[in-house]
Structures are given as C-alpha cells and as structure tokens.
Simulated scan of single mutants.
Amino acid sequence: MSDYVSIGQEGTFLDHIGGIEWSAAPDAIGIRLTVRSAHVNPNGTVHGGLILTLLDFTLGAEVERSLGAGQQGHPITIQLSSSMIGAASLGETLLGSARVTARTKTMSFVAGEITCDGRLIASAAAVFRNPRTA
C-alpha cells in the first residue's frame, strides 16, 4: 500500500472521530487508525461502534474506488453485516481492507476486514447503492 494520508472530511462525523487515514492504490483502498484514548471503551479496548464505522468507511471507499471516475456522489450503505472477532488496545494500529465481490448496475457487494498486528479484529459484508454516473 502506498503512503497513508488523512481522509480530510473536516467538520464531519469521521473528522470528529479523528485520526483516520487512507491509502489508495490502483487496485485497493486501505485505512489506518492508531487507537487513542477517545477511541476506547471502559474496558480499555476499541469501542465496537468505532470498528463498525471503520468497516463502513473502508467498504464504501473500496466501492467508490472500484467504480472509478465519473460518479456523482458517494456509495450509500444499504446493508452491513459484521462479526466482532478480536480487540485492540490503546496505541495499537488498526488496518482496514476490502474487495468488491459482485456488482450490478445499481448495487455493489463488498467484503472486508479490520486487522491489528496480524490479528483479525472484525469482518463484514455489505451492499452499497452505487452513485449515479455523470
């Protein structure tokens, strides 16, 4: 994966979470987040809601990348199914990856995961409504 950069999105929900970075290669999107104190639950591990948000963002970004230029708007999450498998703690780095598994004219089907130091933290499968073409 190439260099990671901030996702930007100043003033949005993702900006409020803070620290999310992404890397776009011609054939894949990757996300990265180093866990800060604002990201953990009372157990000291990453909050499940943050994991779901990272999965949704990662899968949607991969759909958008795979569709290429000429889209008006962004993919819209229709359905997201996930499994929480592991945990990550303060200071650890989460990595997200995804792949489109099928597509119709209006929908994209995608699967992905969040890992940390080679451990599987969560996996997901989703359906996104494709944005309109220009």
Results as ranks from 00 to 15, higher is better:
T45P: 02
A88L: 03
G112I: 04
R32V: 07
R103E: 15
E62V: 05
M107F: 14
T106S: 14
G86P: 08
S82V: 13
D27K: 11
I31V: 14
H47A: 05
G18Y: 01
T45N: 10
L55N: 07
I114G: 01
L90F: 03
R132E: 11
L95G: 00
G73C: 07
F57E: 14
L90N: 03
S89G: 14
L67S: 01
L67V: 01
Q72G: 01
L50F: 05
I78Y: 09
G49K: 14
H39K: 03
W22H: 13
S37E: 15
K105Y: 11
H74A: 14
T106W: 08
T58M: 09
A25I: 09
L67H: 00
A126M: 06
T104V: 03
V63R: 01
A88Y: 01
A125Y: 12
I76G: 00
V35R: 00
T115G: 06
S66V: 10
F128R: 00
R32A: 10
S66D: 15
S23F: 02
G86L: 11
G118Q: 12
V35E: 04
G91C: 05
T104I: 06
D27I: 12
G48S: 05
A69Y: 00
T45L: 03
E92A: 02
S66Y: 10
S37V: 13
A98E: 04
D27V: 12
A111M: 12
A125G: 13
F13K: 12
F109Y: 15
V63N: 07
I20Y: 07
L95E: 08
L14M: 15
E62A: 02
R103M: 13
R119M: 10
H39P: 10
V40M: 05
S82R: 02
V100K: 08
L55I: 08
I20H: 04
R36K: 11
S23M: 04
Q79F: 03
G73N: 09
A69H: 00
N41D: 05
G18M: 05
A125N: 14
E113C: 05
Q79K: 09
A87W: 00
I29F: 13
F109D: 01
L80I: 14
G118P: 11
S123Q: 15
L33F: 07
L90T: 07
T93N: 06
W22Q: 11
R99Y: 03
S108W: 10
R103K: 13
G19W: 00
A28K: 15
W22T: 06
A38M: 08
